[in-house]
Simulated assay, not measured.
Amino acid sequence: MIDTFDQSFLRHLTSVSEPFVKALLLTGPSPDLVKPVSLPDPEKPGRGEVLVRMKAASVNFIDTAVASGLYPGISYPIVPVADGAGVVIGIGEGVTGVKVGHRVAIHPKSRWIAGRPTAERARTMRGVTHNGSLQEFATVPSDTVVVAPGFLDWRHIAALPIAATTAWNALKAAVIRPGSWVVLLGTGGLSLMGLQFAKALGAHVIVTSTSEKKAERVKALGADHVIKTSAGSDWSCQVLDLTDGVGADLVLETIGEATFNSAVRSVRQGGTVFTAGFVSGSRVEVDLMSIITRAVRVIGVNTGSVEDLEEAMAVIASADIRPVLGTELNVAAAADALRGQPGFGKTIIHLDW
């Protein structure tokens, strides 16, 4: 872990004694049903736990899906939003490696510390199965917080858990190295995190975009090529042209139904389609021969482990990577953030109670 200490933590300790703490509660499957509430004063963290004063949160597609009723099995009411960052203000017994004053990202999978996914590890998630980040204080297992480097502010730290973990796992799965070819779809937070990691590894990066303005911005971030697309278009031939007919080593598939087949056609023999999103829908008709005869690896992902986020954070620290931020809203406008705002970079909620 990266030892980064917040010298102002004493100021936060005094507020823990307040009788109630503030939170936002999602009471049903609509952003219009986000309600401000007062929660009981947080208890002293138990063994293996830390108490975190939350400072910022970031929105992922899963959060908008939960808020709109598109994600199955949600028990409302719930404090929404998986990803968040804050300062450690309390330590339980037996906690090592984390100190009061550390600035941390909270990994959303509280039972997936390391290793391969299992049903138990993957299904437990902040903002989905239990309360998430839109609260003043959160008591969490100490082995689910990852200390952030000092050059990142609260917004950047909050933007990392899902996007950095997922993007890093995609690059690892495809064994990306200098000279590899990576295709990223659109300019959301996950794709831009993939761009930053891929360039740090020396890869060539192709980004698809429907916007000329966004294309220019993504080039400024280091994209080698931008393919202009339109809804439903097949861009695989352009990827093949750019890679001299070979195809990409990796397509980080974040869109789903509308783009999946183009992704399969775009990868090289033995290439990887790393599928992490279903923004356009989750039902796809696939030509299996295209996958079988070219030995394409299709890998589904449900984020990753705390250990994966620690690895990603180490790369971020060594390569001086700052996540790309998009829309920033205060906590009073959190419902607007949960409606989903397609844009450039991560949507951030400042927890400015």
Rank of each mutant, 00 (worst) to 15 (best):
K346Q: 08
S75V: 13
S142T: 02
E257R: 14
P42F: 04
T210G: 15
P108G: 05
A114Q: 14
G189E: 05
D41M: 13
G132W: 11
A319E: 11
E311F: 02
R297M: 10
G48K: 11
D224A: 07
N60P: 09
L309C: 02
G194M: 03
A138H: 12
V279R: 12
G281M: 08
V298T: 06
V88T: 03
L39P: 04
T208R: 07
V205S: 05
G90V: 05
V95G: 05
D287P: 01
A119I: 15
T14N: 10
G245K: 08
F274K: 00
S191G: 00
V37A: 04
T144L: 00
I157V: 15
Q135F: 08
R294G: 09
S191R: 04
T272R: 09
A319L: 01
S75W: 00
L26N: 01
F344K: 03
P161E: 12
A337D: 04
V66T: 04
V37K: 06
G188L: 07
A276D: 11
S318C: 05
V34M: 01
H156L: 01
G245C: 06
L242T: 01
T272W: 12
Y71C: 09
L240I: 04
A203T: 08
A119E: 15
E253D: 12
A163G: 00
G115T: 12
R103Y: 14
V306K: 10
T187N: 07
E253H: 01
R47L: 07
A174D: 02
G326P: 09
L329S: 08
Y71A: 05
A174E: 08
T210D: 03
H107K: 09
V79D: 09
V88E: 03
E120C: 03
L309M: 06
A263M: 02
S110W: 13
E49D: 14
G326C: 12
I91S: 06
F137N: 03
A56Q: 13
L39F: 05
G132F: 10
K22A: 14
H350D: 13
A337C: 09
G84L: 09
I113V: 15
L24K: 14
V87N: 06
G343Q: 08
S211T: 02
L351H: 13
V218Q: 02
R121D: 09
V239K: 00
A215I: 04
A65V: 00
M193L: 03
E93D: 15
T129Y: 05
F9M: 07
R339A: 03
A119R: 14
P29M: 09
V98S: 09
A231K: 15
A148P: 00
G94P: 05
T4V: 13
A163Y: 02
V284S: 01
D244W: 11
H130L: 05
G245L: 02
G94L: 12
V175E: 15
L195P: 00
S75Q: 14
G256W: 08
H102F: 11
A334C: 13
A164R: 04
G101M: 11
F197E: 00
S230G: 14
R123D: 12
I62W: 02
I91N: 04
V128H: 03
L190H: 04
S209H: 09
A295Q: 14
L39T: 02
G73S: 06
A220E: 15
P42R: 09
G94A: 12
A57E: 12
I321T: 01
